[in-house]
């Protein structure tokens, strides 16, 4: 069978693009709140104000003249990340893991001298990496010390956890594991593996590559069933609290696990995709309906919402 029937999808509660756009995003996400998630600097400032754990912001370069002060400003920082505030698709992110004399070291071991670093920041400011080429600002934040619990689950890099939050209730979660085929990118339709994560326990539920179920990671050979996210309620709590902060009713929160600081929100997304349903082998519809029903009767704080979700959306 190459295609399925709308009836079957409906029965399983699968949400399509049109429904996501018209109902979930259209009715829950006010346009004026979009900058809160589209501009990572605003996200970070709001998150810090709300006490939501994020990688610490070291500084912001707003004007070209700031580039000259970079060396001095970063003198005390060993490892950091420079990224465009309004970048898309991971473009323009420069990761520095250490120092060697006056040079900076990239994760690959190659060196970046002071001039190249300045140039990179200058490129960010002039909008090289932002959508539509608009001028941008460069954020410098501390490097996440990725926990090694996900070792072997990804071909390159460290996976983050995507949690879909509906009106403050975590509804579904997944992680995207890069493969050789996806060229190290965590992009599902380029061949990355999507692993659905049980809201109730943080354990892997189901893994898919190209929409087809897989058991082991195609490159590392690791059994994907063994994947389990530690401190799971903390992850969910971060997701739930980002609702109050962003006021977006349909939200995707990308959370990473730091070895020392625990889960941190990396970024938020106002238009989270629908592949999560495939990774979970479960539709969003019924869970969203359950939450709508719940909201009509009572209002809850984030930790109560997490408890509710863990109880009702566990597999």
């Amino acid at each position: 069978m190459l295609i399925t029937s709308p009836g079957r999808l409906r029965k399983r509660g699968i949400v399509g693009m049109n429904k996501r756009n018209v109902v979930y995003i259209g009715q829950n996400n006010k346009r004026k709140f979009y900058p809160r998630v589209d501009d990572k600097l605003i996200t970070k400032i709001l998150a810090e104000e709300a006490g939501i754990a994020v990688p610490r912001l070291i500084g912001v370069a707003r004007y070209q003249r700031h580039t000259k002060q970079l060396a001095e400003f970063l003198a005390q920082e060993k490892a950091f990340v420079i990224k465009p505030s309004k970048g898309s698709g991971g473009k323009g992110i420069l990761v520095i893991v250490g120092r060697d004399g006056n040079d900076y070291l990239k994760p690959s071991g190659s060196r970046v001298n002071d001039q190249a670093l300045r140039r990179h920041v200058s490129d960010i400011l002039s909008g090289l990496f932002s959508l539509g080429g608009r001028p941008d600002v460069a954020m410098i934040e501390e490097l996440v010390n990725f926990s090694d619990v996900f070792e072997g689950f990804s071909f390159e890099g460290v996976p983050d956890i995507r949690i879909i939050v509906y009106k403050g209730y975590p509804v579904m979660a997944m992680t995207r594991l890069s493969t050789r085929e996806s060229d190290g990118k965590a992009n599902l339709h380029q061949g990355a593996v999507g692993v659905g994560i049980d809201i109730g326990s943080g354990k892997a539920l189901n893994a898919v590559q190209h929409g087809q179920p897989v058991e082991i990671h195609p490159d590392t050979g690791r059994n994907l069933n063994e994947l389990e996210v530690p401190d799971w309620p903390v992850f969910l709590d971060l997701g739930a609290r980002s609702y109050e902060m962003s006021e977006l009713g349909y939200l995707g929160a990308d959370v990473v696990l730091d070895k020392f600081k625990g889960p941190l929100i990396l970024e938020l997304n106002a238009r989270p995709g629908l592949a999560i349903q495939v990774a979970n082998n479960h539709g969003l519809e019924s869970r969203v309906a359950r939450i709508e029903e719940e909201i009509r009767t009572c209002q809850r704080n984030p930790s109560e919402r997490v408890a509710f979700s863990m109880q009702h959306f566990a597999s």
Binding site: M1, L2, I3, T4, S5, P6, R8, L9, R12, I14, G16, M17, N18, V208, G211, Q212, P213, Q277, V278, N281, G283
Partner: peptide
């Protein structure tokens, strides 16, 4: 649903 989604979500059906 869009027609293409009947293909995309085919495994879910």
């Amino acid at each position: 649903y869009r027609l293409s989604e009947l293909r995309r979500f085919e495994p879910m059906g």
